[in-house]
Design a protein around this nucleic acid. Structure first.
Length: 213
DNA sequence: TGCCAGGCCCTCTTTAGGGCCTT
């Protein structure tokens, strides 16, 4: 029996909590959560709060449940991103609305003088294409829509990373079950996330026929 | 104190505007 989730899909799924929406305006990461997903299972986890060096506003405290008191004693970004770079290794990355996490990742990695090799795929872009009947494509909505387990409080980095990982596994399962696709490589998933919505059905059918030979 | 961004994607589109998503 072919592997349900080929080894090529070993990825790190990550999520940042941040002080705001834009590193260009001085916002910083305040928490990172990451999980290693191997052959469809979470095999390792990394989580840390990050001291941004300033007080976050009350909106962020309420949204995340992360208080300024918690951040005051948190480690600095330099050490955290050094550890994160080690955790990621050479793996590719998955995030929900990956463009957001990528811009913070790039900004913080540059500040910490660290680098990473992998590229990002976006669970939200793929979900918009294959779950077109979902009420919307927020992470929380998709977790409920697909009846995925809650991994903790939403808007905490490790819980969101784990739920994004569960969503990623569900997406792989559904592509296999509904479209008889087995060769779900990372490049294929990235391509799926960029495909025009109107062409998705045809694209999946063509892929399925190609795999069937 | 209140505000800020940006990529994607749709449509009444491409010489644009606005909703969705992330914190």
């Amino acid at each position: 029996m072919p592997s349900r989730h080929p080894k090529a899909n070993t990825v790190v799924v990550l999520d940042f909590e941040t002080s705001g929406l834009s590193p260009n305006l001085g916002d910083r990461a305040i928490e990172v959560g990451a999980v290693l997903l191997e052959n469809g299972s979470i095999t390792d986890r990394y989580q840390s709060l990050i001291n941004p060096g300033f007080r976050v506003d009350s909106f962020i405290e309420r949204l995340t449940g992360i208080s300024n008191t918690m951040l005051r004693s948190a480690p600095s970004a330099t050490g955290v991103f050094k550890e994160l770079a080690r955790f990621i290794g050479n793996h590719n990355l998955v995030a929900h609305n990956a463009s957001f996490d990528k811009k913070f990742m790039d900004a913080e990695m540059a500040l910490a003088r660290q680098s990473y090799q992998g590229t990002f795929a976006c669970s939200m872009l793929i979900a918009r294409r294959i779950y077109q009947n979902a009420p919307d494509h927020k992470l929380g909505t998709l977790v409920r829509y697909k009846k995925l387990p809650l991994a903790g409080e939403f808007h905490r980095a490790l819980a969101d990373a784990e739920m994004t990982a569960n969503l990623w596994i569900k997406i792989l399962d559904d592509l296999q079950a509904d479209h008889q696709l087995d060769n779900l490589t990372f490049p294929f998933m990235k391509k799926l996330g960029r495909m025009p919505k109107a062409s998705i059905a045809q694209f999946l059918l063509r892929q399925s026929q190609t795999e069937a030979g």
